[in-house]
Structure formats: C-alpha cells, structure tokens
Simulated scan of single mutants.
Amino acid sequence: MNTQEVADRLVQLCREGKNVDAINELYDEHIVSREPAGTPMEITEGKEAVRDKTIQWINSVQQVHHESFSDAMVGGDFFSCVMEIDVTYKQHGRMAMTEIAVYEVKNGKIIAEQFFYRMPA
C-alpha cells in the first residue's frame, strides 16, 4: 500500500472504532509512538507496546460521547489527521480533546506516529 492507501485505511478503521485492528494491520513491528512531553506514555516503542497502550486507554474509558477522525492529508511518506474525542474516563471524569496526529509510512506500514494536544485544565 502507498501512503494514501494506508492513511485511508487507518481513518476507516478508526471511524469504525477498530483501533486495535488498525495497529495489527497497518503498524510496523518497530513502530515508535510519541505523545506530548511529560505525558505518561511519552515514547512507546514496538507494535506490541503500542497495542497495549491503546488497549489500556480503551479500558480506561467509561463512555464515549463523541469521536471523530478527519480525512487524512498526505504529503510524501507522511500523513496527518485531526481527532476529536469527548469521553468520560472511569477515574478522571469527562474530558473533551482535539489532537493532531502525524504518521510516517515506509514499505506500506506505519513506522512512526506523533500526537499533538494539550491536556485539559
């Protein structure tokens, strides 16, 4: 798959709530995932660790009120999309966030992802 195809497939799976399936299908074994500096999972390396991080997040959510994923914008080996989420966490209550995700693709697999957002006050 080329970058556009990977991007379109990721967006499709995320819109269907199949985030773990997206990791299983599209992520490279040596993926590097970056969250903003100072967050608990600032850097996560490896497909299994990224999948575990995603499952941990899913399990922390009590209720999803709204979730959206923009179409991807592709440039060369990179693509980005905007994610909006409004959820109630089991331990932290309700939070709404908007983030930009940037992905790098090589040989038809996502090799890096980075998320840009500010934690709600």
Rank of each mutant, 00 (worst) to 15 (best):
M1W: 04
M1K: 11
N2Y: 09
N2Q: 07
N2F: 09
T3G: 13
E5W: 06
V6A: 10
V6M: 11
V6F: 08
V6E: 06
R9A: 09
R9H: 05
L10E: 11
L10Y: 10
L10S: 08
L13S: 01
C14E: 10
C14Q: 12
C14T: 05
R15V: 01
E16C: 06
E16Q: 15
K18P: 00
K18N: 08
K18C: 02
N19P: 00
N19C: 04
N19V: 05
V20T: 08
A22D: 03
A22W: 07
A22H: 09
A22M: 13
I23A: 02
N24A: 10
E25R: 05
Y27L: 10
E29W: 11
E29D: 15
H30Y: 10
V32Q: 11
V32W: 07
V32F: 06
S33I: 04
S33H: 13
R34N: 06
E35G: 03
P36C: 06
P36Q: 07
A37Q: 11
A37F: 07
G38V: 04
T39D: 00
T39L: 09
M41A: 14
I43L: 13
I43E: 15
T44R: 08
E45N: 09
G46Y: 07
G46F: 10
K47M: 14
K47N: 14
K47D: 13
K47P: 13
V50F: 12
V50S: 06
R51P: 12
K53P: 00
K53S: 14
I55D: 02
Q56G: 13
W57N: 03
I58L: 12
N59T: 05
N59E: 14
S60E: 09
V61G: 04
Q62C: 02
Q62V: 07
Q63H: 15
E67C: 13
E67M: 13
F69K: 08
D71Y: 01
M73T: 13
M73I: 15
G75A: 15
G75K: 15
G76V: 10
G76H: 11
F78Q: 13
F79T: 04
S80A: 14
S80N: 12
V82L: 07
I85Q: 06
D86W: 00
V87W: 02
T88H: 00
Y89W: 05
K90W: 00
Q91S: 15
H92K: 12
G93H: 05
A96S: 11
M97W: 03
T98W: 01
E99Y: 12
A101I: 06
A101F: 05
V102E: 00
V102G: 02
E104F: 04
E104I: 03
V105I: 08
V105A: 01
K106V: 07
K106N: 10
K109E: 07
K109M: 11
I110C: 07
Q114V: 11
F116E: 02
R118Y: 08
M119L: 13
M119C: 08
P120W: 01
A121W: 03
